[in-house]
């Protein structure tokens, strides 16, 4: 599914005040395209308040997401790089420099995507190169290349 990502699904060098703001900003495009409802954004933030920064995957990447029933309308993903990075409260992997916003609509349709992403993100060098992208185009080209390599 990673092959369907376009430059419209990527925003680079976003500035945010704190982690809440960062999640809101990275979810905004999906909200505008009606892929998620407003409450889905709240649910993503709420989960971090409730459980802690468990959405930080490691390697300075956060996977912002909530349950499908919290208002996800269509399977979709959005990549946001943060510059400067934002602290999510997970001391090992702060600052977070890449937020992947995921809207899953059921238990398994997004698993292929998760697998592809895992393959790329496991390598910290990949994350660093992605985050250094100056434009969405550059990010996308890198992403596709990494996917083919994996």
């Amino acid at each position: 599914m990673l092959e369907n990502v376009t430059i419209n699904d990527i925003e680079v060098n976003v500035q945010a005040a704190d982690w809440e703001d960062a999640i809101r900003k990275s979810a905004q495009p999906l909200l505008e395209r009606d892929k998620i409802e407003e409450r889905y954004v709240d649910a993503m933030i709420d989960a971090v308040h409730r459980v802690g920064p468990y959405i930080v995957l490691g390697n300075h990447v956060a996977l912002a997401h909530a349950r499908p029933e919290c208002g996800a309308k269509e399977l979709s993903v959005f990549f946001t790089t943060l510059n400067p990075g934002i602290a999510f409260g997970n001391e090992n992997f702060d600052p977070v420099t890449l937020i992947i916003t995921l809207a899953a609509i059921d238990e398994d349709s997004h698993l292929e995507l998760m697998g592809e992403l895992a393959g790329i993100l496991m390598d910290e060098k990949n994350v660093m190169r992605l985050v250094e992208s100056k434009t969405s185009e550059e990010f996308l080209t890198l992403l596709q290349k990494m996917r083919d390599e994996d």
Partner: peptide
């Protein structure tokens, strides 16, 4: 296992699978 059960856990599960 994770809170929502489909994002972080799915990611982690696929890493272990690999």
């Amino acid at each position: 296992v994770c809170d929502a059960g489909l994002g972080s856990s799915a990611m982690g599960a696929s890493v272990i699978g690999k």
